[in-house]
């Protein structure tokens, strides 16, 4: 275990190789052989409402997850709790990742039987409408482009125009985009 700074951790959870902490953040090193990236993603995602989360690769075979509390942290105990919670989530995600893998065939079979089975045969009209050309490969619907890019938020220039019309709109959006509202479950 490494204790670079102020906070020392005497009982780090089994899931974590080492822990380093400052007054506001904690970094945990995780063995990528034991914990797949999907589990690291899953556990990290749980914290993005409370923490700024950064994942890097300090060395091959390891992930380092740094959690920086958004709000001020009064005591080292709060950081210790973050480590414990993260380790718990990591174990849970790894476990559920494996459970999902184990049951993938069953999940797909159930879903296909429940959903696709009810679609019935295509009608003659459906077949008549079907595009048999290669044009679909040109991505006419812009599937490769994100929906927000095509239809969603406008460019800053367009926004300026909208702002002239509705003064409060832009302010609302800026606040919401940067919002860290006290809201989560």
């Amino acid at each position: 275990m490494s204790t670079d700074n102020q906070t020392s951790f005497t009982d780090i959870p089994e899931a974590v190789v080492s822990v380093a902490a400052t007054d506001r953040s904690v970094s945990m090193v995780v063995d990528s052989e034991l914990y797949p990236l999907q589990a690291v993603y899953g556990a990290s995602y749980i914290f993005i409402d409370r923490c700024y989360v950064f994942i890097d690769r300090p060395e091959p075979g390891k992930y380092r997850v740094t959690l920086t509390a958004k709000e001020s942290v009064e005591e080292a105990e709060a950081l210790r709790q973050l480590v414990g919670e993260y380790a718990n989530e990591l174990l849970s995600c790894a476990w559920r990742h494996q459970v999902t893998q184990d049951n993938r065939v069953a999940i797909e079979t159930v879903t296909v039987q429940a959903i696709a089975g009810a679609m019935g045969e295509p009608s003659l009209d459906d077949l008549a409408d079907f595009d048999f050309t290669d044009e679909a490969l040109d991505d006419p619907l812009g599937i490769a482009q994100s929906w927000e890019d095509k239809h969603g938020r406008k460019s800053p220039a367009e926004k300026e125009q909208a702002k002239a019309k509705v003064p409060e709109g832009e302010a609302a959006e800026a606040t919401e985009a940067a919002s860290t509202e006290e809201a989560s479950a």
Binding site: I48, E148, G152, E176, A177, T180, E181, A183, S184
Partner: peptide
């Protein structure tokens, strides 16, 4: 979309 800028949103801090 309105609150978080994307139709997908981000459930961890979604009201």
């Amino acid at each position: 979309y309105k609150a978080q800028g994307s139709v997908f949103g981000r459930m961890r801090d979604n009201n």
